[in-house]
Design a binder for these strands. Structure first.
Lengths: 212, 212
DNA sequence: TAGTATGGTTAACCAGGTTAAGATTTTCCT
DNA sequence: AGGAAAATCTTAACCTGGTTAACCATACTA
């Protein structure tokens, strides 16, 4: 009758203990200054157990926010008929801004802020995040192709790369505003404007000027 | 009178010995199966010396091809007056295709082919390459801003991200064709077409279709 | 030719990550 | 309820990428 057995409940608790210990330590001393052995000790777990839950040190930080993100491929596949893929992605990003999704950068509450400050101050975290995004970019390309958003595989890959490029810059810009001290509510209008600008550029063309 | 002293000549020889040893070993056994200690031994150099020349194991492979690449920022700054930044970048990529620049993926001669097969079969190499590209993307954004290609910093970052996104997909596609057994000369026309397509999408807009 | 900087070597170390063996605990079946 | 089977955890040792310190050798410079 129980949804989760005792075993799975324990696993969930251990996992949470590890991420909590990790975030606490990383926030205090910085990502690089904390050894995974310290995290394991703080979570009262052995080192191999920690690595059974999280494949790398970086995942201690990233998985917490990436795990429950369905990703843009899901958005494209689930878009209402009659809507273009690019429109659906734009709308999805705007929705996530409104919801203060940490992955848009526009979130000023503690777990997300430490996430971002760790992220943008630790190259290896940025790097690992980028790997994840590249995976999802491939998923998006496939979704574009199979759900009829685009004519051929090459165009699908290009479009997917452009969308991820834009979202990356948008998120970075938002997070930067938050880290500069602005509240999420105050930045929201500007964030929306930037999103519209970015997607307008994608839809209508970049149009750079001539040299002086 | 001598351009390089004996000391510098020795340094150049040591550096070359290291990269050559690295490429030979990596090509035979794969990047991950070879320890840097093996490379050092094969190059008849100690491990700390190796790391004095190359900051990481990945750089043993990447620096060889990245070192002499001026990067897109240079292209934008040096473009003829009257030409848009995007046009200059498109033309530069086409020029590099014609020259069979390994960084375009369109090169089927031994040092470049092993470079690509290592790259696309070794996630950590891809990852490190991406870090390099992100640096240059920032440079490009700055060049776009200061050389008047674009109106504001935000747009500059977006455009830079889009350009790098496109070039990454183009290079990957070309390298894939080469690895599939096609010669560079045979693939060249298709590579040109893809380049034009990609830059047309950037200039004129992506225009994805509605859902079915 | 003497002194100094530079680049090299050895040896030891650190941190991330893995592996094998054995102990412990939940589950599940009868 | 009892006990075999399966899953999880621990310990201890190991591997590899990368760094540090102390010391040696060689090229440059006065």
């Amino acid at each position: 009758m129980h949804d989760l057995g005792l075993r799975d409940r324990k696993k969930r608790r251990t996992r949470e203990a590890i991420t909590e210990a990790a975030f606490a330590l990383f926030q205090r001393s910085g990502f690089d200054s904390v050894a995974v052995a310290d995290v394991a000790a703080a979570a009262e777990v052995s080192k191999p157990t920690l690595f059974a839950y999280f494949p790398t040190k970086e995942d201690l930080v990233l998985r917490r926010f990436l795990d429950d993100d369905p990703g843009p491929a899901h958005v494209v596949r689930g878009r209402p008929s009659g809507m273009s893929a690019l429109r659906a992605l734009r709308q999805d990003f705007l929705d996530r801004l409104a919801q203060r999704d940490p992955l848009t950068g526009l979130n000023d509450t503690p777990p997300a802020t430490t996430f971002h400050s760790l992220l943008y101050s630790t190259p290896t975290l940025m790097t690992r995040l980028t790997s994840y995004l590249l995976e999802r970019e491939r998923d998006l390309a496939e979704a574009l192709l199979t759900s009829g958003g685009v004519s051929d595989a090459f165009t699908a890959r290009i479009v997917a790369a452009e969308v991820f490029g834009a979202q990356r810059i948008l998120a970075e810009h938002n997070a930067q505003d938050i880290r500069a001290g602005h509240s999420a509510d105050d930045t929201y209008p500007a964030a929306v404007t930037r999103t519209e600008t970015a997607y307008d550029l994608l839809e209508n063309g970049l149009d750079t000027r001539a040299a002086s």
